[in-house]
Amino acid sequence: MDAMDRAIVNSLQGGFPVTEQPFADVATTLGLSEDDLISRIGNLLVQGTLTRFGPMYHAERLGGALTLAAMKIPPAEFDRVAEIVNSFPEVAHNYARDHAFNMWFVLATETPEEIGRVIVKIEHKTGHIVHNMPKVEEFFVGLRFEA
């Protein structure tokens, strides 16, 4: 990653235009050619510096639902339970964390009602309680990472 890649990562975390030739518009402000910008973004994606390039959607505003859920899993069962939890397509992210509540995942469903149904299914398949921690209020979203 060179200085120009950093400039791209830092300046393009939002505000990408909806225009005929958006890459050309942005390339001008960065002092690049359109082709160069497109190939650099492609490389950043291939290298894994960027996970995605495009619109970020607000799931709840699409009628979908999101929740954060936590489980307390004994170490000996952890991998087995992780495999079951991950097998649900509604599980978008799942992280192991160093706490008695050691498995934390985000559930995303198309309707709010499905959240409860998926939780019951996960409990049934794993034999462990799922602690549902839906957001009551959101204070801020959208950190920008500096490259």
Binding site: V18, I41, T51, R52, F53, G54, P55, M56, H58, A147
Partner: peptide, 30 residues
């Protein structure tokens, strides 16, 4: 039509359905 795609995406940006458009960095990689 391309114009329709752009109009709809602009509207979704305004209404907040689209939070933003751009690069989503892998913070581990950074």
């Amino acid at each position: 039509e391309p114009q329709e795609v752009m109009q709809r995406m602009n509207r979704m940006c305004e209404s907040g359905v689209i939070r933003r458009i751009g690069a989503v960095p892998n913070h581990y990689a950074l």
